[in-house]
Design a protein around this nucleic acid. Structure first.
Ligand SMILES: [Zn+2]
Ligand SMILES: [Zn+2]
Length: 132
DNA sequence: TATAACGTCTAA
DNA sequence: TTAGACGTTATA
């Protein structure tokens, strides 16, 4: 196979080629490790595949499982800020955007939800040993 | 029900 | 890659 050993057999070799944006969005500027330093990292591989499309997540039943919304920490500077500036794009487009004022956006919510798999870096220093 | 805001998709 | 739109969840 000219493909990646045992990675996503159903998707074949075309996955990364067809989803460069998604990969860059999660693995690169995802937020953790600030890409570019020479070290990359995995950005939610487990959830990444599930997050490919919103077909997963089952909040319907139970009412406890599934991916629920995170809440603001309430301690960061933006969280302590009160009142909307009414001038930022979030405030101006509040009617359609449904987003909190940019100056009030919680620092923790700015980062993508971390699952813990992001830190999966092998001792060899390689992030994707199966690619080598 | 109304209001606020997170998560994700998609156009630019 | 980013900002905006939309759907959905969470709280009052
Ligand atoms: Zn604002
Ligand atoms: Zn906060």
């Amino acid at each position: 196979m000219g493909c990646v050993t045992d990675f996503l057999p159903l998707l074949g070799c075309s996955w990364i080629s067809l989803n460069p944006g998604l990969f860059a969005l999660t693995a690169g500027g995802g937020g953790f490790l600030t890409g570019g330093g020479g070290s990359m990292g995995m950005a939610g591989v487990g959830e990444g595949v599930e997050g490919l499309r919103g077909e997963n997540s089952s909040p319907g039943s139970g009412g406890g499982a599934g991916r629920r919304k995170r809440k603001r920490c309430g301690e960061c500077v933006p969280c302590r800020r009160m009142g909307n500036c009414e001038e930022c794009s979030a405030c101006r487009n509040r009617k359609t955007g449904h987003q909190i004022c940019k100056y009030r956006k919680c620092e923790q919510l700015k980062k993508k939800a971390a699952t813990g798999l992001e830190k999966m870096v092998f001792p060899s220093g390689a992030v994707f040993p199966w690619l080598q």
